[in-house]
């Protein structure tokens, strides 16, 4: 096989191939353009593909963890402790009621009124100009 024939084969096959590339029909050119744009868009937003897959289990996992924690606290706490806590809470409410209805609260209000009168007097005294 001569070198010239070999070159001729290469040149002719190359010309035929490039001719077929140039004569690609419009439909295929359009599909290639769409494929290119799809590839570039997919590469531009890499995080969007995995985010929904990652996100779907997060609420489920949160609810499950909260449920497990609630059950663990409920089951792990002694029943006596519940009763004591409830009694303490009730006792605190009663104390609050006693304090609110106490006669001493009226005394405190009277003292506050006295203080207000004093502050009013002090304010006037400060603003009054001294006599010449």
């Amino acid at each position: 096989m001569g070198e010239q024939n070999r070159d001729s084969l290469e040149e002719r096959s190359r010309a035929l191939f490039h001719d077929s590339v140039e004569n690609l029909d419009m439909r295929m050119r359009s599909r290639l353009t769409q494929a290119r744009h799809a590839a570039l868009e997919a590469a531009a937003a890499p995080s969007h593909s995995w985010l929904p897959r990652k996100a779907w289990w997060m609420p489920t996992a949160g609810v499950t963890a909260a449920a497990v924690l609630g059950v663990a606290l409920w089951m792990g706490t002694p029943a006596v402790h519940h009763a004591v806590s409830f009694a303490d809470a009730q006792s605190n409410l009663e104390d609050l009621d006693i304090v609110a209805s106490s006669d001493e609260s009226g005394d405190a209000l009277e003292m506050l009124q006295d203080d207000l009168d004093f502050y009013d007097f002090a304010d006037k005294a400060a603003n009054t100009e001294p006599a010449a």
Binding site: M28, R31, L32, A35, R36, A38, A39, L40, A42, A43, P46
Partner: peptide, 16 residues
């Protein structure tokens, strides 16, 4: 067309 699109995607994602 499928293999060309796949190659474009892999190039842009992994080797750009």
């Amino acid at each position: 067309l499928d293999v060309v699109q796949d190659a474009m995607l892999k190039l842009t994602k992994n080797y750009a």
